[in-house]
């Protein structure tokens, strides 16, 4: 079981994160959930995931701060996919500058997300 790929998912919309958890677990990944940026940082530090999925707008620590923390403080190259909503184009640019790997604009199709996740982790 140890060789399951680990994913940390930081998303404050509980329904969406539940949906994605089910979907990704079905695909054979191990999921660690976080409702806000603070929890996400904890999950990342304890579980050392293979991939991070994070929303850009979150309470306490935003997705941007999260990326910056992973890249600069933890010095980790773990791929990061950010979710953004309409009107956050500026933030997406900042996210890429900080070192995000990929982004998905909401509303997105979960199937597409799975494809991208698989591609990054293969």
């Amino acid at each position: 079981m140890d060789n399951l790929k680990k994913i940390v998912l930081a998303e404050d919309n509980s329904t969406l994160s539940l949906l994605l958890k089910f979907r990704l677990e079905k695909e054979g990944f191990q999921l660690f959930m976080a409702e806000n940026g603070k929890e996400a940082v904890n999950q990342i530090e304890t579980n050392n995931p293979d991939l991070i999925l994070t929303d850009i707008m979150m309470p306490y620590i935003s997705g941007l701060e999260l990326i910056s923390h992973v890249r600069n403080k933890l010095n980790s190259k773990t791929p990061i996919i950010v979710f953004s909503s309409a009107g956050q184009e500026e933030m997406v640019l900042k996210a890429f500058n900080l070192g995000a790997t990929d982004f998905m604009g909401k509303p997105f199709s979960p199937n597409e997300l799975v494809i991208r996740v698989k591609r990054i982790l293969s």
Partner: peptide, 8 residues
């Protein structure tokens, strides 16, 4: 809540 974030 889910429909807003999801397409397809």
């Amino acid at each position: 809540k889910l429909k807003k974030e999801i397409s397809g």
